[in-house]
């Protein structure tokens, strides 16, 4: 693989020096483009108290194209599907090379605080979120307890 671009080196350094509260992102020992991420569930959200594992990969043409991010921990959320894929505009058409790993992870954390059932990825979850929000939130809390609190 080609040498790591300066941008990735610097970004990783800054991420280590000034970590984002509630988020940790550590590059893999064998692949500096692969990050092990842990996001803590935001306060006052059904995900509060949970620790969510994600994987983040910087593709060859990063930062011209967006990082690939996926939830590994199961999560009950209208914009995240069974496979952990995330529906977030900045990861797709709204990506800008001026965005960073830091900003992406902050946006994901914000998505946990403010689910958007009108732009769903997991249809059944979004449906329930719209017709019976309290039950959906109960489910989300239950999933958080079951999948995001053990380890």
């Amino acid at each position: 693989m080609a040498a790591l671009p300066r941008r990735i080196i610097k970004e990783t350094q800054r991420l280590m020096q000034e970590p984002v509260p509630g988020i940790s992102a550590v590059p893999d020992d064998s692949n500096a483009r692969y990050f092990h991420v842990i996001v803590t569930g935001p306060e006052d959200s059904p995900f509060e108290g949970g620790l969510f594992k994600l994987e983040l990969f910087l593709p060859e043409d990063y930062p011209m194209s967006a990082p690939k991010v996926r939830f590994i921990t199961k999560i009950y959320h209208p914009n995240i599907d069974r496979l952990g894929r995330i529906c977030l505009d900045i990861l797709k058409d709204k990506w800008s090379p001026a965005l960073q790993i830091r900003t992406v992870l902050l946006s994901i954390q914000a998505l946990l605080s403010a689910p958007n059932p009108d732009d769903p990825l997991a249809n059944d979850v979004a449906e329930l979120w719209k017709v019976n929000e309290s039950e959906a939130i109960r489910n989300a809390k239950e999933w958080t307890r079951r999948y995001a609190m053990d380890n």
Binding site: D61, M64, S65, K94, P97, L99
Partner: peptide, 25 residues
């Protein structure tokens, strides 16, 4: 970076008339 950004937009995404500034939002 401008060159790379525009090249990606043009060659990968096929955008011409509507390439926005590289800054977010």
């Amino acid at each position: 970076c401008w060159n790379e950004y525009l090249t990606t937009k043009i060659m990968e995404e096929g955008v011409g008339q509507t390439i926005a500034c590289a800054a977010h939002n």
